[in-house]
């Protein structure tokens, strides 16, 4: 059989290192040995198949049972391509976030901010044939964490992507434009390349904005592309 085409290696400057001293939790959790580079096999170039029948879509986080969540309603949308600009269709996108007060619907989150019974804070959508996705939510609030004195996470939404290869699996965070906390955030700043960091910041988008209803934010994501270099078989 023919070999699966591997994914291109990640560019280290555009990714956060596992050892990021300013983010305290990495200290005891990052491997000290270098990762072992292996040739990609079917294990890495294939991926789970998800579909809407088995994994129902939930594209509106702004209400529960018809009751509106508190906060500023937003629409988030964008396009998922690979590094060569090819649209990635059928990507399962998982989303989770804090509520407008900066609190997660999660038992371990003890931040002294109110929970909202009408905000669960999770969504699941799939990209269309052109790689596009969108969902409705509430603009999350900033919240404190204990990384350093007076530490606050910038406003963010978590994204998990399942592409066509296990090697493409990615979890990332989307930030909001103009957030003053971005300059102070060690997680955001762990990625060395400035342009790569800025691609994590969504853009206000008037075309996505729905009149009399909600502001739109555009957030495009890029999954690893296939390596064009033919692999020499032994």
């Amino acid at each position: 059989m023919s070999d699966a085409i591997p994914y291109r290696a990640l560019d280290a400057a555009t990714q956060p290192p596992l050892d990021a001293p300013a983010y305290g939790s990495t200290r005891k959790r990052h491997p000290k040995h270098p990762l072992l580079r292996i040739p990609q096999t079917l294990t890495e170039t294939s991926a789970p198949r998800f579909d809407e029948a088995g994994y129902p879509v939930q594209a509106d986080m702004s209400q529960v049972g018809g009751k509106a969540a508190l906060g500023e309603r937003i629409i988030v949308g964008g396009r998922i391509t690979d590094e060569d600009g090819r649209p990635q269709a059928g990507v399962m996108v998982e989303v989770w976030q804090a509520n407008a007060s900066g609190r997660y619907h999660h038992p371990r989150d003890q931040h002294d901010a109110p929970l909202d019974p009408n905000f669960e804070g999770r969504a699941r959508i799939f990209t269309d044939a052109d790689g596009r996705y969108s969902f409705v939510s509430i603009r999350p609030g900033a919240y404190p964490w204990r990384n350093h004195h007076n530490a606050w996470r910038p406003v963010h939404i978590h994204f998990g992507l399942h592409g066509a290869g296990f090697a493409q699996r990615m979890i990332t965070q989307m930030y909001f434009p103009g957030d003053p906390l971005l300059d102070l955030d060690p997680i955001f700043h762990a990625t060395p390349d400035k342009a790569a960091r800025e691609r994590l910041v969504s853009k206000f988008d008037l075309d996505l904005t729905k009149p009399e209803w909600a502001l739109g934010y555009r957030f495009d994501m890029v999954l690893r592309g296939r390596d064009a270099t033919p692999f020499e078989t032994q």
């Binding site: 600009g85 990615m170 960091r197 994590l200």
Partner: peptide
């Protein structure tokens, strides 16, 4: 365009 940066 390089792949989007992972975040924890």
């Amino acid at each position: 365009t390089p792949a989007t940066a992972h975040q924890t």
